[in-house]
Structure formats: C-alpha cells, structure tokens
Design a binder for these strands. Structure first.
Lengths: 150, 150
DNA sequence: GGTAATTACATAGGCATGTTATATAGTTAG
DNA sequence: CTAACTATATAACATGCCTATGTAATTACC
C-alpha cells in the first residue's frame, strides 16, 4: 500500500548514503561489494562477479584489472578451463576491505547518531532480512535471463 | 554492537539498488533526489541544492543545466539578489519525477517480492524513521562546516 | 561614494567508471 | 578438424563528478 513511499524513501536514502560516504575516493561501491563477495564466497570468475554486481563483463574486467594493479586481488587460472580468470582476494585486499568497512561503519554510526538504539536495531534487523532476499532475487533474475535469453 | 554488520549490509544494499535500478539511464540518482527536494521544499538556489545532495556547486550547476534543457526545471532570478539562480520544478518536471518514482517503486516491489508482508512493513517503517534523521544529520553538518569554516 | 573583499554561479579541463561493439583464445560438438 | 560457443580483453565513447578559476552582483569600509 505505501510501498510507493517506502520505495522513494529507499531511493533517497541510497542517494544520501552514496554522497554521504564520499570519503570513498579509494574504493568505489562496486569495488567494495566485489571484494566483499570474494571474501564471503571465495575465488570467482569475472563473469560471475559481473552478474552478481549487476555490471557488464567489460566493466568487471576493468575493475579487476585496477584491483589487481593495487595488489588487492590476484588472477589465477582454472586448471580445467584455460579461458577463465579466477579472481581471488589477497591478504592485502582483505585488509583494505576491512579498513574501508571500518571507516564506513564509523561514518554510518555518525549518521545514525542521535537515533534511539531501538530504532537503529530495527533498521539493522530489517537490513539483515532484506539484503539476502534481494541478493537471491537478483541471482534468480540473472539465471532466468541467461536461460531464457531475455 | 553489530552496527558494523549493519553498516556493511547497508553499503551492499546501496550498491545493489544502484545497479539493480539501472533502467535509470534517464535520470541519475542525484537528479531524482534533487527534483524530489524541489517538490518537497519549493524553489531553491543552486548552492542549497548542491549542499543538500552533497555534490559540489559546479556539479549542481551542470545538473541544473541538463534538467533545464530537458524542460524539467526553470531558473528564475531572485529580485532581492541578482546573483542567485532560483531553480523551480516545472509541470513537466513533476510528471517526470512521478513517472520515474512509479517505475522505481515497481522495481523495488519486484526485488522485495516473496518477502512476508510483515518484513516489508518493518523495512518500510525503519526507512521512514531513519531517512529524516540522516537528512537532519547531513543538514547539520553542512551548517556546522560553513559556520566553522572546516 | 568608490574600492576591496565576499558571495553566487559559470566555465574549463580532467578523471573514474560505466556502456556497447568487437576481437581473441580456449572449449565442445559434429 | 572445423564450426560454434564461451570467457575474457580491448576499443571507443558517454556520463557525472571533481578542482581550479573566471565573472558578475553584493556588502563593507574608509
């Protein structure tokens, strides 16, 4: 019913967070999310990363190249398929991700400062619920469209 | 305590939403938020818009120029100060914003599809609570830094 | 009341990150 | 062994942001 209002609020929040975290000149949102995925799920091929983050394959190729130059990821090869580039997180990459996340958490804590703890918790819980659902949803869409050739 | 986790979830959600809504090649996130601000609060000067959206003044000048070319906003002058450009929403701008928001709401409804209504409501409520707080926080920071010359 | 500092906005040039179209190398099918 | 497909790379371009700087209007001060 007022899903509409919620959707608009979400969009506006996203916009504010994107700008409000703009100390982030070191790692883009996509870079952070990609490193996070590698941390959560281990080495992945370029195509999988591109689909998971919703960018094109060439964009992901370029992002990985930049991350590789900075020593945050390495590219291995898949013994069973010579075409694939298997991207993995380096120790340095893990450290950079952890550091960046720490800064982001501090910044977000500032932005949420002043809110009652109960509301912060409610927000955190809602995020923890909604995020996996959206990930699953996007994953399903990717599969569907590659299967159906949408 | 696990504000850290929430912060990371928020960041990842933001990233997914940014990419997941990329039917948005017509209006950038900043453009949508700016039009929304004009709708909520009436005509504003460039500087105020830039501060509210967290972009530099030249960026806002350019955004307004693009929006003006597309007929979504007009620029008036302030009778009491010849330097200022007072930006207002046109009828067409209101329509475009409404249309874009409708599409976004549909898309977000899709992404949330499958979640129990209670959780969607909880998320919506949390957003409605958190968003004004963050707006206020960012507004306060802007004032503080311009007053203190940070 | 005229000059200096300030303010609001515009312009210029550059960078990061995204896109589509296309090339190349490895794999699978026949 | 060749054709078709798949995974990644390269090229050319677009968008949106930035910093540095220019210009016109306003305010402050002697």
């Amino acid at each position: 019913m007022d899903l509409d209002r919620s959707a608009n609020n979400l969009l506006d929040l996203v916009s504010l967070v994107v700008r409000g975290l703009s100390g982030n000149r070191d790692l883009s949102l996509t870079a952070i999310a990609t490193l996070g995925l590698l941390l959560r799920e281990g080495p992945q091929r370029i195509t999988v990363l591109a689909a998971a983050e919703g960018v094109s394959q060439p964009s992901m190729t370029q992002l990985v190249q930049r991350l590789e130059q900075r020593g945050l990821v390495t590219r291995g090869s898949d013994p069973s398929d010579g075409r694939v580039a298997l991207v993995s997180l380096t120790t340095e990459g893990k450290a950079a991700l952890a550091h960046r996340r720490e800064l982001n958490a501090e910044r977000i804590a500032e932005l949420l400062g002043g809110l009652p703890q109960a509301e912060v918790d409610a927000f955190g819980d809602a995020l923890a619920t909604v995020l996996p659902a959206i990930r699953a949803r996007l994953g399903a869409e990717t599969h569907a469209s590659s299967a159906a050739g949408k």
